[in-house]
Structure formats: C-alpha cells, structure tokens
C-alpha cells in the first residue's frame, strides 16, 4: 500500500520536474515541427503565407536534380567540417586532459572565451585573413613563397574552415569531458607494459572517448548543415547550402510551403543522424 502510493507520488513528482522542459519542447520544438509539416503540404499564398488546397507537389519539386545537388553539397560540407573539427579537436582535448587541473581550467576558458564575441565578427575576421589582398596572402608574397595570391576566400574550403573555427569548441568540450574521466593509470600501465603511443590511443583513449567523439560530431554537424550565413560571407554566395534554400524560399520567393519542405528534409536528416549517434553511443558504452 504505502509502497505503491510512494511510487505513484514519485511518478507525479517526476512529471512535475519534467513539465518545464516538456512545455518548452512542446512550444518551441513540437508545435513548430508539426506546423512545418502542415505548411509543406499547403499552397503558397500570392504574397507569402499559405492557402489551400493541400497538395504534395513540393516533395516532388524537391527531388529536382538541382535541389538534390544542394542537399548533397550541404552533407559533404557539414561532414568535412565535422571531420576537420575532430582531427583538430581530439588531439587538443587529449592534450588538455593530460595537464594539471589549473592548466586544464585555463585552457578550457581560453577555448570558450572567443564565444563571447559576436559570431558575425568572428566570421568577418576570416574575410580579413583569407582574401586575395589579405594578411595570409600578403605574408606569403612578402617572404617570396608566392607571386600570385592563392585563392582561398569565396571557395567551399573557406566555408569549411570558417565553420570549423566557429564550432570547434563544441567538439573539444565533450571529448575533453569524456577523456578527463579516464583513469590516467590506464595509459601509464599500457606504456609500462611496452605499448606504443598509437596502440594506447587506439585501445584506451579513443574507445573511452567515443561517446564524447560522437556527441562532438553531432554538435558540429547539426549547426553546420543548417548554416546559411557562413556560405554567404566566406563562400561569396557561390556555395549554396540547404539553409540558404530554406531562407530564400521563405524570404525571397515567398514560397513558404516549399521552404517548409526543405526545413522538413533538414529535420529528417538530423533525426536519422541523431538516432544513429545515440545507437552508436549506446554500443560504445557497452564495449567500453
């Protein structure tokens, strides 16, 4: 009696604790996604907005090769950004995790600090660095390494570099959080027993950091895939991503249903990826 009453209370208490989060998610995630779903099957109003009748033309329109190409481009660029972030972020996180507590805090703060600057300002900084008359090209010219400036800005490469810079902390922090918990004795024992650096990485650090790595990959991939400001500024408008399509359909073509269709496609891609990540993460935890 008492026991079941207690569990009922705690269940109620659970709902009470969860309710702010649930209300938030309903208001700002569930309702927008469902309204997007509705919008995508309606017809564009003459001046924006949506009207009846219901139709599914937008989904066949979205499979036009030109749009499929944009979606594929976006996937490639976001993947490249996530991988580049991992290649830079993992060694950085590993290095920080091996330092003394004091230095760990200093470096983590140093990584977060640029985040306090507006994201547009940080992106503009790359314009100054990469342009043909910019700091890097001038330096290379002055030391005689090149005669003609290397074209770096307004290329897909510049978009990837810019987004890697923006989202790198989102890779470093979860990997660091995972590595920091790893018992240092494990790697020391491996070295004592004659393991190479690479082997200890492969058998200890990487598997144990795997949940952090997977979270980092998702954290970088998700905002990269939907980004439309960096392709515009650093890609010079010559690299179009799915985020640009959504924005253009809503604001320029005033075709809200078609914009909603792309937003839905973007959401679907992300749901699939996040499901894969959580599956892989569970598996990694079991193996670890």
């Amino acid at each position: 009696m008492v026991k079941s009453g207690g569990s009922k209370n705690s269940r109620h208490l659970g709902w009470a604790w969860a309710s702010p989060g649930l209300i938030f998610l309903t208001l700002f995630a569930a309702i927008p996604v469902v309204s997007m779903l509705f919008m995508s099957v309606l017809t564009a109003g003459r001046f924006g907005g949506v009207t009846t009748p219901i139709n599914f033309d937008n989904f066949s329109r979205a499979t036009d090769p030109i749009f499929v190409q944009v979606i594929l481009n976006s996937l490639v660029i976001a993947s490249a950004t996530a991988i580049l972030s991992l290649l830079i972020g993992f060694p950085t996180a590993l290095f920080i995790s091996r330092l003394s507590r004091k230095w760990q805090i200093i470096l983590i703060v140093a990584i977060i600090l640029p985040y306090w600057t507006n994201f547009l300002v940080r992106t503009y900084a790359w314009l100054v660095l990469l342009n043909n008359e910019g700091i890097i090209n001038k330096f290379l010219k002055n030391i005689g390494l090149i005669d003609k400036p290397i074209e770096m800005l307004y290329t897909p490469g510049a978009v990837i570099v810019g987004m890697t810079y923006l989202y790198l902390p989102l890779m470093i922090l979860p990997i660091y959080a995972a590595l920091e918990k790893v018992d240092k004795n494990l790697t020391e024992a491996a070295y004592d027993l004659g393991s190479s650096v690479w082997k200890s990485l492969r058998t200890i650090s990487i598997p144990l950091a795997m949940p952090g790595i997977l979270i980092g990959l998702i954290f970088v991939f998700v905002p990269s895939l939907g980004n439309f400001v960096v392709p515009e500024l650093l890609g010079g408008g010559k690299t179009v991503m799915i985020g640009n399509l959504v924005r253009d359909q809503f604001l320029k073509a005033r075709d809200w249903p078609f914009g909603a269709t792309f937003a839905l496609i973007l959401t679907l891609i992300l749901i699939v990826l996040i499901s894969l990540q959580s599956y892989a993460s569970k598996k990694a935890n079991v193996n670890a």
């Binding site: 309702i31 927008p32 469902v34 309204s35 779903l37 509705f38 919008m39 309606l42 109003g45 003459r46 001046f47 924006g48 907005g49 949506v50 009207t51 009846t52 809200w256």
Partner: peptide, 12 residues
C-alpha cells in the same frame, strides 16, 4: 499548429 497555419492564411 493548425491554428498557426490558419492564421498565416489570413489576409492573403
């Protein structure tokens, strides 16, 4: 969501 969509329909 339906209410939101309908309100977007208005005044078109």
């Amino acid at each position: 969501a339906a209410a939101l969509v309908l309100s977007a329909c208005g005044g078109s």
